[in-house]
Design a protein around this nucleic acid. Sequence first.
DNA 1: ATGAAAGCGCTAACAG
DNA 2: CTGTTAGCGCTTTCAT
Lengths: 327, 327
Amino acid sequence: MATIKEIAKMAGVSTATVSKILNGKDQYISEATRQKVLEIVEREGYIPNGIAKSLKMRRTKTIGIIVPDVMNLFFSELARGVEDAAEKKGYSVILCNSDNKEVKEEKYLNVLQEKMVDGIIMTAAEDSMNKAIKRCKTPMVLVDRDIELDMSVGRITVNNEEGAYKATKFLIERGCKDIGFISSEKKNKPSAERLSGYIKALKDHGLNVDDRKIFLQNFTIDSGYNGVMALLEKTNIDGIFCGNDLIAIGAIQALKEKKIKVPEKVKVIGFDDISIAQFIDPPLTTIRQPIYKLGEEAVNMLVAIIEKRDINRNIVLETELVERRSC
Amino acid sequence: MATIKEIAKMAGVSTATVSKILNGKDQYISEATRQKVLEIVEREGYIPNGIAKSLKMRRTKTIGIIVPDVMNLFFSELARGVEDAAEKKGYSVILCNSDNKEVKEEKYLNVLQEKMVDGIIMTAAEDSMNKAIKRCKTPMVLVDRDIELDMSVGRITVNNEEGAYKATKFLIERGCKDIGFISSEKKNKPSAERLSGYIKALKDHGLNVDDRKIFLQNFTIDSGYNGVMALLEKTNIDGIFCGNDLIAIGAIQALKEKKIKVPEKVKVIGFDDISIAQFIDPPLTTIRQPIYKLGEEAVNMLVAIIEKRDINRNIVLETELVERRSC
DNA sequence: ATGAAAGCGCTAACAG
DNA sequence: CTGTTAGCGCTTTCAT
């Protein structure tokens, strides 16, 4: 691998000259030497050592992203939004899967800092890991989950309560009286907020909040399946608001198994609008989050923080109801 | 951010000593200084500068992965396999989405080399971009698509032809006589191989190969939809082998729209067994690829190449038919 | 058992 | 218009 020194020697100039030319700081370089150097760079297929450059410049032009699991469609779309936006701004992205485990988050936070990433985007598991995040001096923006934190990290979230309210209200307007709610545990912030929206909508429309109609487990297909089975044991249901689309998929599967028609007997609405939502059967009515945009905005905010530009560090994006055929 | 120098000063030792202790090369360090140094490191929350370390050591402990699109479930599973295996071996991974575009591949190949990654895992678009790959001096393993290349990159693929043969044979055994094939274009290697398997199975069982029953476009849901619509215009069909599960999803959707029952009227079989295959309606019978394992094996091979260990540089994994209800 | 010092490849201030 | 040079923070050889 050629170095700048070797290129300089071949061209009969100093490394400073080569550096300037390669970095566009060549206002004062004669066209002749510029041509010569470029030619040799080309001929030798010279690739600058970015590590050396980063050491000198004290920035790596890479950001880290920590998500629970890229295989989860929500996070793969988020990751894609992040990667695209980062690429546009000249950043690379290091991907980390935490499985919602505090230990993994902490570990990755550490390696990202060692790798001297310029910034970190993460959707943190639960409030528990404040300390690790607090210790972290690297610019950071929290996406999707706004954990309790006093410090100055950026935050990008979605209006979960309002989205949940819309969903529940939609079910009510469709004639549902016994509406179940299946979601993740309360310590998961978005899930807790969606629960609030659900409760609020029920109350606003004179419907009872019945604990037997609420099932809180995980944001997974399995939980959706389990939730329906559990709810059906305890109570009657004619509509289900699912905390996310994965849960809705599992719920519909369970309903089918029980020969309960969707949406005739039970209406189902999800949350997220992940890319396959429209392809399940029946196509899922759901509350769309601008997932990809969440990722884009996260890097915009992060880069602003990195560049110490003054910006709004708390963005809340809106949701939108997408009507399909599951209710 | 504290540096090793500052830590050394605080501890009243040299940087060499600190370095040795931090890297476990402390056989000859007295327990007393070891304790003292560790204590200060802890107290200061010192995080070594990995960039400086990389520059010195000439390795970054990070690998790059270039895939068409992480939002595609196949590649998100692959990426997850890669990330998990990499993490186990102490590597981080930089994620790049190429959208199957040569320009993007070349660009990323370049930034990854600048970033001095220790190795690259990629599923390359088409044969066209040989030159960029050839120029690349970084260890590399090609996954999923074994493009034409003379040099010594590693390859991990799946036995596509055999898998396709199995799929087609299965359809035939289920009584299908008019079997369509919907897949990506032939210049996509796996697609071409699956086409061969399909043709071979047809011939082996005395069935005609009919060009009107073959639709080649992309590995997308839309192509599946388009494929069915196109096939239905031209010919009769009682079974469809889809080049991947996404296509199968689109195909089933189109069939439903046409009120054609699956599997009663037309049987459908996919390829890949992506995670949602079991949740579509009807649950998809498909040829399972060990996608996650593909990713794991890719990093195992890559790390072996990086460490200059002598290993088999051409692994072909087997497929497996997963019977569900779409045929 | 510990430290001095060279050097990884680059940038940029400064000198000429 | 071009070059000299001092680091960026770390590891490692070689002395002591």
